[in-house]
Design a protein around this nucleic acid. Structure first.
Length: 108
DNA sequence: ATATTGACTATCA
DNA sequence: TTGATAGCCAATA
């Protein structure tokens, strides 16, 4: 069971996210030209456990920590983001537009 | 093989 | 503004 397909492509992009920045599922999907769409990026993250993938830096399009519940401890994701300088309030990234790291724009 | 679900997004009411 | 609906693709409850 080697999902060495777009899964690893997603992981690679997520690893490129600088600390103190976040990105969205749609941005990754769009950058990789994934036919799959944003949902599969989230699914790839599900398999990202055990890898060096900072999935806590990946949020949905409005900056909501939609995947925090998958970190074992619901507060783990928020704590990680806060530790990196990202302000999180009510499960949502504060100043989301400022900390947003879009690979299609930043990485080009 | 079919139906349901999902760490999403865009559009419409 | 929020809420509902559709589109999208892959894995499986």
């Amino acid at each position: 069971m080697e999902q060495r397909d777009y899964f690893e492509d997603v992981y690679d992009v997520v690893r490129l996210i600088p600390a103190g920045r976040v990105t969205t599922y749609g941005a990754i999907a769009r950058y990789l030209s994934l036919r799959a769409g944003a949902r599969m990026v989230g699914w790839a993250m599900n398999a990202a456990h055990g890898r060096d993938v900072p999935a806590h830096r990946v949020v949905n399009r409005i900056g909501v920590l939609s995947g925090k519940h998958f970190f074992g401890n619901p507060t783990a994701m928020q704590d990680l983001l806060t530790a990196e300088g990202i302000e999180v309030k009510d499960d949502r990234v504060v100043k989301f537009s400022e900390v947003l790291w879009d690979p299609a724009t930043e990485l080009a």
